[in-house]
């Protein structure tokens, strides 16, 4: 059972499936996951069926379903990436400057003693 509780997914159905489709899917799933051999899965299948078996219950179930996102419109042919593979002066000089006094703000070691007396 999906932890989100989507009964349609559990029964392998699309949203809007008919009552007959729901019934058929339920019995099919129970055959695949009988309670004796797969009790957990059976419980989930049964719970999903309970949420869809009556029109009234479906009314409530459909109201609080997770909404699937629209499919991503992937580009038919993605453009190859265009990288700038040069070493620019900017990168070089940025590193060079960071190694000089331009990266400092404290220059007390350049103070000179004042001798007046």
């Amino acid at each position: 059972m999906t932890a989100s509780g989507d009964p349609y997914s559990v029964l392998g159905l699309k949203r809007g499936a008919s009552h007959e489709e729901i019934r058929r899917a339920y019995f099919q799933k129970v055959r695949e996951h009988p309670p004796e051999t797969d009790p957990e899965a059976f419980k989930a299948i049964r719970a999903a069926y309970e949420q869809l078996r009556s029109a009234e219950q479906r009314l409530v179930t459909d109201l609080y379903l997770l909404q699937a996102p629209p499919p991503w419109p992937a580009p038919a042919r993605p453009a190859p990436p265009h990288f700038d593979l040069c070493l620019h002066c900017q990168e070089l000089l940025a590193a060079a400057k960071a190694l000089t006094d331009l990266a400092r703000t404290d220059f007390r070691d350049d103070y000179q003693a004042v001798h007046l007396s």
Binding site: P75, P81, H82, D84, C86, H88, Q90, E91, A95, A98
Partner: peptide
């Protein structure tokens, strides 16, 4: 490590975009 140039930013953006796709 602190490098922040336009070329680096652009290259990373293109790379992330490509890998995201």
């Amino acid at each position: 490590l602190g490098l922040d140039t336009p070329a680096l930013r652009d290259n990373l953006k293109v790379l992330y975009h490509c890998r995201a796709e």
